[in-house]
Computed example of a mutant assay.
Amino acid sequence: MIEFKAVSLASLLNLRNQYLDSLRYPQELHCEWLVAKGGCFCIEQDGRVVGYFIRSEEGDLIEFYLPDKLFSRKEEIFGRVLEEFQIKSAFCKSFDDLFMACCHAFGQSSKIGGYLFRFFTEEIVMSLPEEVTVRKAKEIDIPLLLTHDSDLYESPEELNYTVSHRMILMYEKDGVLLGCGYLIRVLPDKEIFDVGMWVNPAFRRQGYATLIISHLKETCLKAGYTPIAGCAADNIASRRTLEKCGFMTKHCAIVFEF
């Protein structure tokens, strides 16, 4: 008999590690942040935990995992999850095979929500000029960063978190902020870092986006880290910048409607 129970994210650690290890390519940072705020549920068979699923704060299904021995029942179990938890949509990485198969089986429509960059060339297309300095953002910088447009952060709380954990680099010239770079470890036990950038509106269309991504990529490669990236489907400028810097995408995040 299959049952579902609400649990903590910590209690799913072993199962989540199995899930993450089963993915052909590294986890997406955006998904990790959705998971951190989401609701977690274990899937039990005859009293034993055999799988799990997670839905976001907004109610989107963002992870669904079953062991190989239950693959033949995946549609049955997935359908029950959708019905019993009134789930209307899902956010799925295209390389998450089990989740994708189930979403296709029940989805009424789908669209690309974002592009996932998991491949890159070793080439560094732009080196950091001497007049541009780089430093980690500190708490004292938050008031300045909050004066800029929201492309820099989704919420003040997110900005506080990334700054306090030294995940934002500030690129300056003559004491003026050109832009920021994001260098964020996706999972605590893996040396895989998500890279991203924001350019001060006063300095856009001057090549600084390419400069920042190039520098972040070079920083990762020199440290022996693997850089990955992602961007929203409608963010054409970010996609072009990533591709100019040698990042390549074969995969995407797909939004399914049920």
Rank of each mutant, 00 (worst) to 15 (best):
R239N: 02
I2R: 05
V7S: 08
E139I: 12
E28R: 09
R16F: 04
T241D: 01
C92Q: 02
E122M: 11
L152G: 00
F120A: 03
V255A: 05
T210L: 04
I140K: 15
G175Q: 07
Y182A: 09
D46P: 03
V81K: 01
D68I: 06
E84A: 10
E172G: 06
R205G: 05
F41W: 12
R239V: 00
L13D: 14
S110V: 05
S109Y: 11
H165M: 12
E32V: 06
L98T: 08
L128G: 05
G224K: 08
C231Y: 00
A90F: 00
Y153M: 03
G39L: 12
K190C: 10
L221F: 04
G181A: 08
L216R: 00
R24E: 15
F78W: 08
I212L: 06
E257R: 14
L145C: 09
H104P: 01
K74F: 04
L23E: 04
P156D: 07
S72V: 14
L20N: 13
G246Y: 07
D151S: 13
I2G: 03
L211K: 00
K37T: 15
T249E: 03
C103W: 03
F193M: 09
R166L: 13
F99W: 02
E139S: 14
L98V: 10
E123D: 15
I192C: 10
T249Q: 04
W33I: 11
C42K: 10
G107S: 11
T249P: 00
R240T: 10
R118V: 04
L34H: 04
C252G: 02
Q86M: 12
K138Q: 15
N160G: 11
A253F: 02
A253P: 00
E28W: 06
Q108E: 15
R239A: 06
K37R: 15
G51A: 06
R205K: 15
I142N: 03
K5C: 10
C103N: 12
L178K: 00
A105R: 11
